[in-house]
Write a protein that binds this DNA or RNA. Structure first.
Lengths: 194, 194
DNA sequence: AGTAAAGTGTCTCAACTGAGACAGGGAACG
DNA sequence: CGTTCCCTGTCTCAGTTGAGACACTTTACT
């Protein structure tokens, strides 16, 4: 659903806009971008842009939605038993959308998107609904404490941006292991508050 | 003339085909490429390809023709007095079309294009019609000796491919100086044969 | 040689896109 | 405060492109 079943032209337009968006964020900043700049770089008309998207935020939202779908599919294939494997998959996902995330989460990115990403992570964690190394499938009350979920999502986003901006030398596996451990410690501490 | 006055769509199609061509040569080889592969990568229809080009050779020829126009313009701006400057401009031109030349002249490239390039160089040298460090504008008989012109063009093409494939560390200026000197020595020797 | 698969080159019609104009909003500048 | 300039968001029509089919040639395998 909402699949890009569209024919070639539509998919091509999407792809060109996507690449143009990322390039321009890298060169300038997301906030400063105009629709005209994006369409010019993408070599499509402004009219074509408005036929599909409301504005640049809508463009990013659609791209991000697709990325999250891909992530869900990748994670969905995994058993529910091994959280570290999920983190591994998660950071592999980040790696495969490297330019996108670096652009949107980095210095030239947008606080708006950072928040969006954090909200997506909170949802993801709630769906998965249990602790790293948790033993059962029950939703843990810790995931309904917004203080905890907010801080958790910020931690993860920071881990991502650090990796993309400074941690070039590290593999997805290493980052996944580190993050997984951090999360475990953090949740364990948080548990004592309940 | 023969300017890409075409509207946006036409120019976009050209650009996408161009990039697809280079990518695919890098991955496979020019000779093995099919029109279908190129158009699929470029995200355009085969029909659109055939509306503009005869075949993949035609595509390369048009791209190359534009590159040579750019080179002529760049060289044309120079005075006729200082051959080393011309070599400098020449290798800067190569640098600005780096991926194209590396793809087409390299291992994955095509002997057909190598020959085409050599012929273009022979023409270029004949137009310029005189020795490196030559003092007058007269066409020198050395440029009508096909033995000499053929070997010269092969030398230059080899200099280009060496630079693009192994000489990453060298600047255009260094390669230009080397080539200029080599040519001077070669022509001087050739003069004694006349 | 015989045959299946893939590529070529061409065509038509529907569909998507570009050009360009328009009214309106917002920021910079005097 | 008004003017200028740029951006937004929308519209229409002409123009380019995609889908898919076609006959033919080439390639690869037996």
């Amino acid at each position: 659903m909402t699949r890009p079943v569209g024919n070639l032209r539509v998919r091509r337009t999407q792809k060109l806009l996507r690449e143009a968006l990322i390039e321009l964020i890298e060169e300038q900043s997301f906030d400063a971008l105009t629709i005209g700049q994006i369409t010019e770089r993408a070599m499509i008309s402004r009219a074509a842009f408005y036929r599909t998207y409301q504005d640049k935020y809508d463009l990013v939202e659609q791209i991000f939605a697709e990325a999250m779908n891909a992530l869900h599919e990748a994670i969905g294939e995994l058993g529910l038993e091994h959280p570290p494997a999920i983190w591994m998959t998660f950071f592999e996902h980040i790696a495969s959308y490297k330019r996108l995330y670096r652009a949107l989460l980095g210095r030239k990115g947008s606080p708006w998107f950072v928040q969006k990403m954090q909200m997506a992570l909170i949802e993801l964690l709630a769906e998965r609904g249990r602790l790293p190394h948790g033993k059962d499938g029950a939703i843990h009350p810790i995931h309904t404490d917004t203080f905890i979920t907010d801080i958790t999502s910020a931690m993860i986003v920071k881990a991502i941006t650090w990796w993309l901006e400074q941690g070039e030398g590290y593999s997805a596996q290493e980052i996944a292991r580190r993050t997984s451990r951090l999360m475990a410690v953090f949740f364990q501490e948080a548990l004592t508050w309940q």
